[in-house]
Amino acid sequence: MTPISLEAMAAMVPDGALLALPPDNSLPSVALAKALIRRGARNLRLLGVPVAGFATDILIGAGCVAEVETSAVSLGEAGFAPRFTAAVKAGQIRMRDATCPAIHTMLQASEKGVPFMPLRGLLGSDILKHRPDWKVIPNPFAENGEDPIVLLPAKQPDFAMFHAVMADSKGNVWLGRKRECATIAHASKRTLVTVERVVEGDFLMDERLAPGAISATYVDAVAVAERGAHPVALLDEYGADPAYVSEYARMAKTEEGFAQWLDREVFTPKAMAAE
């Protein structure tokens, strides 16, 4: 598989697409989020698997997002996600609150090709009350009583997008123990992966690398984006950059501050080269 450019990858994502993103502790592609902002993507629907962070907040702030489905949006230690919070308040985005295992379960149903999967818990939560697409039935296998249980529909994102450490000549990607990204890739129609580097060989021929690899079967495109997870940590390759996130959180409190941040960190050629 020949890697494509980051901007070409962003061009593959049409307006209105449903994009599944991992959270800030599991390899989001911040580089691709920035490229989507530069491309001027609109009406994206984001699925935070199972929660959302930095990449989601900048996409919302840049006006790329119509809907967010996730279990929480936060900047971790840096606090509430400012553009998300402002957009909810202003009614600029549609928020579909879920709870973490429900998001995983809806993707697992898709992965198996079944129309729904059951999940325990949730009964009595207002999350369930506001999800007409989630149903409660009596457990058909219960021996005594009704035993109500929640059924969740399979969810198939248009695109999975995340950042891995490396890709090989065959288009397999390697992301170590963050194998939950495989579920997102399995469940999605297409998978876009940014990587730090491309190496010769075939990860699936290496017993040590294969368990942390996602087969090229699932990967539609690879683009090289050095430090593409920044300011999020990438396994043992580099740590998080809390100062960068704090500065963002401070600036993005206002729309003007966010616009300045966007100019400096997303639209200026220097920032593009540094990614």
Binding site: S71, S74, A81, G121, I127
Partner: peptide, 18 residues
């Protein structure tokens, strides 16, 4: 969904608590 003060979200609480 939190039109007063919006908090980050429920995380896994609706499942874990039970």
């Amino acid at each position: 969904p939190g039109m007063g003060v919006r908090f980050p979200g429920s995380f896994g609480s609706a499942f874990m608590y039970m």
